[in-house]
């Protein structure tokens, strides 16, 4: 029981923290290397392939769904992996090779 409670608290902290942290921003600044982002409601969903085409500095994007299944997209060989949709209010790991600013509104 305690285990599930901890998981629940952990998930709430992760998700709500990011949502609040990124709330109300019109752009997201990504540093070189790993970044965890959660896009605000104002952002329109888009395919990861399109995101990478817009920002070729992105090398990889990863999303882990509720069943802990991992979806990854890597910017190599013209783009490989799952072309999943990036929705607002979900957490994604984006790895970039240099600092960039996402303007997705």
């Amino acid at each position: 029981m305690n285990k599930y409670l901890l998981i629940l608290i952990f998930t709430v902290l992760c998700v709500s923290g990011i949502i609040i942290a990124e709330d109300f921003k019109e752009s997201v600044e990504l540093t070189e290397g790993k970044n965890l982002i959660n896009l605000s409601q104002e952002f329109s969903p888009l395919y990861v392939e399109d995101l990478v085409k817009m920002y070729p500095e992105i090398t990889a994007v990863t999303y882990i769904d509720q069943t802990e299944e991992t979806f990854g997209y890597v910017n190599v060989f013209g783009g490989i992996g799952e072309n999943f949709v990036i929705y607002p209010n979900l957490v994604y790991e984006i790895i970039t090779k240099q600092k960039i600013t996402l303007n997705l509104k």
């Binding site: 965890l36 990889a60 882990i64 991992t70 490989i80 790991e93």
Partner: peptide, 16 residues
């Protein structure tokens, strides 16, 4: 809390 826990939530490194 995020700073402490996010590295545990996400980590992927692709070998292609």
């Amino acid at each position: 809390a995020i700073l402490l826990m996010l590295p545990m939530c996400y980590a992927a490194h692709y070998i292609v």
